[in-house]
Simulated scan of single mutants.
Amino acid sequence: MSTYLWDPFAALGRMDREFDEIVRRAWGPRRPALTGRSQSVEFAVPSADVVTEGEDVLINLELPGVDVEHDVVVEIDRGRLVVRGKRDGRREQERAGRVHRERWSGSFRREFQLPERVDASRISAGYERGVLTVRLAGAAAEPKTTRIAVTAASGDHEHESDHDHESASTPAE
């Protein structure tokens, strides 16, 4: 019989990609701007990659141009890592002496189920070059097996030995 080691992050990554694909099929990779014109902006759901690095798990979310200090919240809620925030954008063009300005905004939310062994105090997040990286320290570590000694109560030992002596002294029929 072979054993199978289930990796929750592999399943999580697969489900995350499948969900992204469903959303993209339903809404398309782009959505119309709020002005109602045919101009489009990027879809508000950030792409995510879940990878392991040694005993740590890294969740990388693409958030280019987002002010992570003011517009992004990373929190743990009921055993789930939640990354939520908003994206704002604007564009300005000048043509023939006229200024054309557009603004748009949208919110996003991504959730990831955390394994029970993740210590919330060992989770960190950083932002560099448009990518938010959340590090779950020790999340990919194999659970350690600890053997615990079992001792019998002293009363149980005496009772068993009395019973053994009685059966030994009982005459056979």
Results as ranks from 00 to 15, higher is better:
G54C: 03
L81G: 04
G138E: 06
D16M: 13
A96H: 11
V72T: 15
S105N: 10
S2M: 10
A96M: 11
G130Q: 03
A139Q: 00
A152V: 08
S2P: 13
F43T: 01
A33C: 04
R90A: 11
H100I: 14
I76N: 06
R84M: 06
I123F: 00
P32C: 03
R78D: 15
E94Q: 09
E116A: 09
D67C: 09
K144I: 11
R122Q: 13
R147V: 14
T145S: 06
R129I: 02
E116Q: 07
G85Q: 04
L12V: 03
L34K: 07
H70I: 08
D20G: 11
E160S: 08
S47M: 10
A11S: 11
N60C: 12
P46N: 08
D71W: 15
T3E: 11
E62D: 08
R14F: 12
P143L: 11
L81A: 03
R101V: 08
V72L: 12
A153R: 04
S38L: 07
E102G: 05
E92R: 14
P29T: 12
D119M: 01
R37K: 08
H159Q: 08
D77L: 15
S169E: 12
V118H: 02
H70N: 15
M15S: 13
L114P: 00
D67K: 14
D49R: 10
R135F: 00
S107C: 01
P64H: 09
R101G: 01
S2E: 14
